[in-house]
Design a protein around this nucleic acid. Structure first.
Length: 358
DNA sequence: AAGACGTGGTC
DNA sequence: TGACCAAGTCT
């Protein structure tokens, strides 16, 4: 009651003075909120800053997004990671426009029926775009409220999420929903930091249970670290009169579906990877590749989720006769590719080592 | 409910 | 360097 009202008031006042100035807060429509929320999923504000405006310029509204090709959309966001979210967003736009709409629906239930929109994003759209009292519990909110109330649960469980949403709802009874949402984001991002929080700058310091108990570092309860796996990725450079071979990853690939890349093969060891890569390329192109001696052209490190990758670019020589088929392209430079290009391929290509000639 | 999915930045 | 983190969703 008065406790919650006081928290909401302090939070709102703090936000008025210390809230961040961000591009996606300038003019807000349901569509622009949606776009920014998708881009910001598991992605730093710094990374999104450089991409948000270009995206909105290229796809200004729901109808433009629905009309665009998936290749165009992925090209616009290549490098941001977690590409399923953008494919889902594109599908959702098609569904909505195909159903005769020209903007997002205004209820959490309808929003959550759309691909790529879950509890968090539906709450963000409802509170930020429609000023509805619907919680949007992200990592910031989990940390701020987890410490404030010394909550042992995590939002990863259904019960945990419910508990956090209930706390946000209490605040929203005493404050403007969009202000509460953004204040919690910003407090988490600039004051209630994961490590070394700046508690002396916090408007809620007097009410923070974790702080009173000297247990700030115990909330949220740490996740179990996932163990990393080392793999080798052998990547092949195959030339012809028309340039270098690139191909398109299948639409049902678990990683980076629809992205263009130099042929690559994951393996436990280099030699193993080379053999697999040669077999793969021969099979798909119907070509014959004779490697008497492997020449390494470039090398790079890359990480994909829990995989630590040692990426090696090797020369597969020059092909004379290759059949053309869908999803295969010969180009002089990756920039000529009419679609999104895999980051590994870009890393290996960008730094053609001294021996890049073959 | 745990694990997959990208990438870049920080301490 | 390595561990951890960033406005999550889906299976």
């Amino acid at each position: 009651m008065t406790g919650q009202a006081s928290l909401a008031r302090r939070l709102s006042a703090w936000f008025g003075r210390h809230g961040r100035d961000l591009p996606w807060r300038e003019h807000r429509t349901p569509y622009s909120v949606w776009v920014s929320e998708i881009m910001l999923q598991q992605t730093t504000a710094a990374a999104v800053r450089g991409r948000y405006e270009a995206f909105l310029e290229r796809f200004p509204d729901l109808v433009a997004l629905a009309r665009a090709s998936e290749e165009e959309v992925l090209s616009e966001v290549a490098g941001l990671g977690y590409y399923r979210r953008f494919r889902a967003m594109k599908k959702a736009a098609e569904q909505l426009v195909g159903g005769g709409r020209d903007d997002l629906p205004g209820t959490r239930e309808e929003l959550m029926e759309l691909p790529g929109i879950g509890f968090y994003t539906s709450g963000a759209i409802c509170s930020l775009a429609f000023s509805q009292p619907v919680p949007a519990v992200d990592g910031n909110v989990e940390r701020v409220l987890g410490r404030l109330h010394a909550m042992a649960e995590r939002v990863s469980s259904r019960r945990g999420l419910r508990a956090f949403e209930d706390r946000v709802l209490e605040l929203m009874e005493h404050g403007e929903p969009s202000t509460i949402t953004e204040a919690l984001f910003d407090l988490g991002a600039t004051v209630c930091l994961p490590r070394s929080p700046r508690c002396d700058a916090c408007p809620l310091q007097g009410s923070c249970v974790a702080r009173q108990q000297g247990r700030i570092d115990e909330f949220p309860t740490p996740k179990v670290a996932t163990t990393m796996v080392d793999r080798v990725v052998v990547v092949g450079h195959l030339g012809s009169r028309r340039g270098t071979l690139f191909w398109r990853r299948p639409d049902d690939a678990s990683r980076m579906p629809g992205f263009w890349e130099l042929p690559e093969c994951w393996a436990d060891g280099f030699d193993d990877g080379v053999a697999k890569l040669v077999a793969l390329v021969e099979k798909r192109l119907g070509a014959r590749i004779a490697l008497d001696e492997v020449t390494e052209m470039n090398q790079a490190r890359h990480t994909i989720t829990r995989h630590r990758l040692d990426c090696r670019l090797i020369s597969l020589g020059t092909s004379t006769a290759c059949r053309d088929e869908d999803g295969v392209l010969w180009v002089r430079d990756p920039s000529e590719i009419p679609g999104p290009v895999s980051t590994i391929t870009k890393k290996l290509w960008r730094r053609p080592a001294a021996a890049g000639e073959a």
